[in-house]
């Protein structure tokens, strides 16, 4: 048990949670408004789409792949929803189903190129990042569709009765638990870590590498499309540039959460912690009147820190371990 606690305390997950607490405490003390319920409502509303996409993306990155097209799928989902609404489809379940199908299709295209044709996911999804965003502009041009019923738009951001926290957080929490269980406590999850570390040995152990990756791309597409619906309703606006650049925020959160960009390492606790951490940081700095450009710089720096950080920690550990024995005095002849 003590061993367990010690190991947990040295883990990256733990560092992320400590950093989160520090940022919250320092923010609450030094920036007016950070302690207010309104602030947290904003942080959570902003974090919801990021978390929804980060969940499947974490699993995908653990297998050693990446999907840069997530924000474009979100944008495309927004415009398709807007277009359908404008052309008279007024049933929310139908809209959700169509957007979901669209996300599945977008993810399947990514997955097919990567698993069938053996192309690197980085290249494929840079391509579809541009392609899906382009399709979003084709769908809606630079129009905005904004005339949704208030019952929908208010419903999407409504608080839990008696609190200020949006009820959506419950949905996201359930999803997070679902993904965490899959990753950490099912045979599928075991396979993901194996694939990320050595896909050849995984194949020899009967892990269906291609199939697994394909379905993760599909899941990522589907969740991105769902995030698009939330986005549309939250801002009551479907536009082709919705969520432009959001992939940076999502990937930053996943990597800062301790997932290795090379695959095979990381967990969902750290990622969820990092999503909140980044959200708090961004909103707190905004409150402190830090300009938007500086915010981008902060996100970028954290992204780099998160890639360098775990490596630096590992290297430092190895150094320490190596140095310790050599401190004993060598016998001389």
């Amino acid at each position: 048990m003590a061993e367990r606690i010690r190991r947990a305390a040295g883990s990256w997950d733990f560092l992320v949670l400590v950093a989160l607490v520090l940022v919250v405490v320092i923010g609450a003390v030094s920036i007016e408004g950070v302690a207010s319920p309104r602030f947290w409502r904003f942080v959570i509303l902003e974090a919801i789409p990021i978390a929804v996409i980060a969940l499947p993306l974490t699993l995908l990155i653990i297998t050693g792949e990446i999907d840069l097209s997530v924000a474009s799928v979100l944008g495309l989902s927004c415009t398709v929803m807007g277009k359908l609404w404008a052309s008279g489809v007024h049933s929310l379940p139908v809209l959700v189903l169509v957007c979901l199908a669209l996300g599945v299709l977008c993810g399947a295209v990514n997955g097919l190129f990567v698993t069938r044709f053996g192309l690197p996911s980085l290249a494929v999804t840079i391509g579809t990042l541009a392609l899906y965003r382009g399709l979003a502009y084709v769908t809606l041009g630079d129009k905005a569709i904004a005339d949704y019923p208030t019952s929908w738009t208010d419903g999407a951001v409504a608080p839990i009765p008696g609190l200020t926290i949006p009820w959506m957080i419950i949905v996201v929490a359930v999803l997070a638990i679902l993904f965490a269980v899959v990753l950490h406590a099912t045979p599928v999850g075991r396979g993901l870590y194996a694939i990320g570390n050595n896909d050849e040995a995984s194949r020899f152990a009967g892990v269906a590498v291609g199939k697994t990756k394909f379905w993760l791309f599909v899941a990522t597409g589907a969740m991105s499309a769902l995030a698009g619906i939330f986005w549309t309703l939250r801002f009551a606006s479907a536009r082709a540039d919705n969520g432009n650049g959001l992939e940076l925020a999502v990937i930053a959160a996943v990597l800062l959460g301790g997932v290795s960009i090379f695959g095979g390492r990381g967990g969902l606790l750290g990622v969820v912690g990092a999503v909140v951490l980044l959200g708090v940081l961004r909103n707190a700095l905004q409150l402190a009147d830090v300009p938007a450009n500086a915010l981008t710089i902060v996100t970028g720096s954290l992204l780099i820190a998160s890639v360098v950080g775990p490596n630096a920690v590992a290297i430092a550990r190895a150094r320490l371990r190596r140095r310790r024995p050599t401190t004993s005095i060598p016998t001389t002849p």
Partner: peptide
């Protein structure tokens, strides 16, 4: 081919049997 070197002895050994060892899909 035989092993995922970074994973533990335990995870390597149970990889081909991970479905059989699960109860109700959980491990």
């Amino acid at each position: 081919q035989g092993l995922v070197m970074e994973l533990s002895v335990e995870r390597n050994q149970t990889l081909p049997r991970r479905w059989k060892l699960s109860t109700a899909g959980l491990l």
